[in-house]
């Protein structure tokens, strides 16, 4: 049986790994460490011998399971690769040239995520770091948290001197943009929207300033109303603590940017 986690939930119980992770660990703990290292190189997550990142982290946290430093090093390198891949870096056109380069803000976010993870996994070697228990439960989702924090910081750093234009025009989203936004919410819509189009939309949403992105998230994905007369209902105005006009302006600016970005790509 795998070593249990220690982090407690609010009700005092201990966090449990999902069954799929426990089952994968059970299989891996019976294999030789060398075989675990070999399997960890399999990149196709549909492959029956694929090693989930949660399990790889478990071995790294309990070095004695890896048996040797060579195996531990292999796992360490592969897990770093997985983190790097979990923080995509967009390409951008180099001004005055036909070449493309990496988006510097995205690179900064990637570095920040990797550094934070490195800090935690090193600290954990000396004193059990309960935060890593979250990663042993759902690795990619815990990385989502790191990426969100890093993106917020990087965005503020990069654009702190850029003023935001107020948009007066009222923009109704095109049907295509609206459908694609819904596809972000439910797989049901996914088949109706071209995958490439969704990928472009995803890149465009990531480029939005955080305050505009949050409105899009709440309005289109969580289906929340901007304002409501019912005091009990959650509204975007209440959640974000700003006026109705501000929320509408942010939504309209965001939609205009999304339309522009998708239009540019198609041109």
């Amino acid at each position: 049986m795998a070593i249990p986690l220690r982090k407690q939930t609010n009700d005092g119980s201990i966090y449990c790994r999902p069954n799929s992770v426990e089952e994968a660990l059970e299989v891996l703990l019976k294999l030789s460490p060398q075989e675990v290292a070999r399997r960890s190189c399999i990149e196709d997550c549909e492959h029956p011998e694929y090693v989930p990142s949660e399990c790889m982290l478990h071995f790294l946290r309990h070095a004695e399971l890896a048996g040797s430093e060579d195996v531990l090093c292999d796992l360490f390198v592969v897990l770093r690769q997985r983190i790097l891949k979990a923080v995509p870096v967009r390409k951008k056109h180099v001004f005055g040239s036909s070449k493309t380069g990496a988006n510097s803000v995205d690179l900064e976010i990637r570095d920040a995520v990797l550094d934070k993870f490195q800090e935690m996994i090193c600290a954990d070697r000396i004193k059990y770091d309960e935060r890593l228990d979250f990663y042993e439960c759902r690795f990619n989702r815990a990385i989502d948290k790191l990426r969100a924090t890093a993106r917020k910081t990087a965005w503020h750093e990069a654009y702190r001197y850029v003023s935001v234009d107020s948009a007066n025009e009222s923009n109704d989203p095109s049907e295509e943009v609206e459908l694609a936004l819904k596809a972000m919410k439910s797989p049901m819509y996914a088949e109706e929207v071209d995958f490439l189009y969704r990928s472009k939309l995803r890149a465009a949403i990531i480029s939005l300033p955080p305050d505009e992105r949050r409105v899009i998230e709440l309005y289109y994905v969580d289906d929340m109303s901007i304002e409501s007369n019912d005091g009990e209902t959650s509204t975007i105005v209440k959640i974000l603590g700003c006026t109705e006009k501000t929320v509408r302006n942010r939504r309209d600016r965001a939609l205009q940017k999304l339309r522009d970005a998708l239009g540019e790509e198609d041109a």
Partner: peptide, 28 residues
């Protein structure tokens, strides 16, 4: 911490909605 919660939710959805992971190794 509403803003941070929304940001995390957004990150997850964007990752799951249109994520193509390359098999090429990334320079480390």
């Amino acid at each position: 911490i509403a803003e941070d919660l929304i940001d995390i939710s957004s990150e997850r959805r964007l990752r799951e909605a249109a994520w193509v992971q390359s098999n090429d190794a990334i320079a480390d």
